[in-house]
Design a protein around this nucleic acid. Sequence first.
DNA 1: GACGCTGTTATGCAAGTGTATAACTAACCG
DNA 2: CGGTTAGTTATACACTTGCATAACAGCGTC
Lengths: 229, 229
Amino acid sequence: MPDAPHPAPLTGGRRPKFRRAGEQRRRQDLIEATLACVAERGLEGATVRAIARRAGVTAGLIRHYFPGKQDLVQAAYAAIMGRMTGHSKAALGDVEPDPRRRLAAFLAASLEPPVIDARVFSVWASFSGRATAEPSLSAAHRAYYLGFRDEVESLVAELFAAAGRPVAPSELRRHAIAVNAVIDGLWIEGCLAGDSFAPRELVEIGITSVERLLGLRLATPSARKAELT
Amino acid sequence: MPDAPHPAPLTGGRRPKFRRAGEQRRRQDLIEATLACVAERGLEGATVRAIARRAGVTAGLIRHYFPGKQDLVQAAYAAIMGRMTGHSKAALGDVEPDPRRRLAAFLAASLEPPVIDARVFSVWASFSGRATAEPSLSAAHRAYYLGFRDEVESLVAELFAAAGRPVAPSELRRHAIAVNAVIDGLWIEGCLAGDSFAPRELVEIGITSVERLLGLRLATPSARKAELT
DNA sequence: GACGCTGTTATGCAAGTGTATAACTAACCG
DNA sequence: CGGTTAGTTATACACTTGCATAACAGCGTC
């Protein structure tokens, strides 16, 4: 993309006008620009110059806010992972403590936009691919993943407890693994081929699947219909 | 890894000895080296020089067998995807036409090494991340993914037919989506945290989960025990 | 309204990138 | 054996990358 011989004048004038933004705002902008670059062109497309152009600044500014490019990348990774798991977990806060509805809400939050999103998947996959090689990313990767699974496990535990069906820890673990797998798998399918699913279809499949996996209903048909509206 | 100032003398002599390999062999070596580089250092670590060093040749040779680096990368992607789906599908050939055992074998093949493997996941994720951006990869990506899901759907259809339980196409589709999701999700979990699972545990969880999802048994407990040995 | 701090730009640099091309040489044929 | 071909190496080149540093200028302060 040879659009500008030099880093990018941004305006036609000699020295482009610029306005100073607070540190918090600039860091956020840079992280957002990084995620956009990774989503559109992959991790290798996220060069300091591409990121800077996207954020509307020049490349040098990145080093003013981050010790190196890798730190920015890592911050971006933490941002998107936190956004994803945070969104799913936040859905629990709005629901009364009925375990059935809590798990259903968790599923719905995980299987709808903005978590179901091709760009989010692209970023996740790019980072995950390099996580094996890069120890700094690897640790965060594992932490987020296991944290999500723990959340699932505690939700499943609540559900069994409320239903009066005691389960051994090993059995609970297996249930959590299976439920987590369904969520992950449906998430991938939704991100990759979102256009082949009706709006709430993935959520419905997810709820039905979890009900069958656990042998418990998450909501009565009428309640589900109301919730899904 | 600054080991050699120039492309790499490979031997101490003036011009290193080399032996000619057949075209098929060299192409395969280059593809293998590419996969190794991607697995260890991510897609951006797969430079022509790194690949060439790994394959025991010099960088220029790549252009002799592939029009450009991108063609090699694409060939490597096709190779690993074909290996994965091929391994799972090949497992069907060895099993008598009992749909229950066929689906069980398919699950086992998909949830064990060499398909369950951290390096395989790393490569898959790296490519998937860039597939969104790169149309050439995107098409192959979708094709392999939907091909796998179609395979699952036909296996599930066989199973229902053998059990005498007719299902509407829309219902069959949903079952296939759910089963596919469980396979994908367990595959990811196994690749990321393979050390936290007992040898055949993922396969057992997979079979149990699919049985619950479909409301059918894939094998009697005794048969399963024999099969898993 | 001039000053000074620091956020921001402009510019340079060494290393690394993919690709092009020429030189070499292993292997095959006569 | 000598000649030919094509697989392989060596080298060069234009470009990009992350990073360093100096010049500049927005903005709060007195």
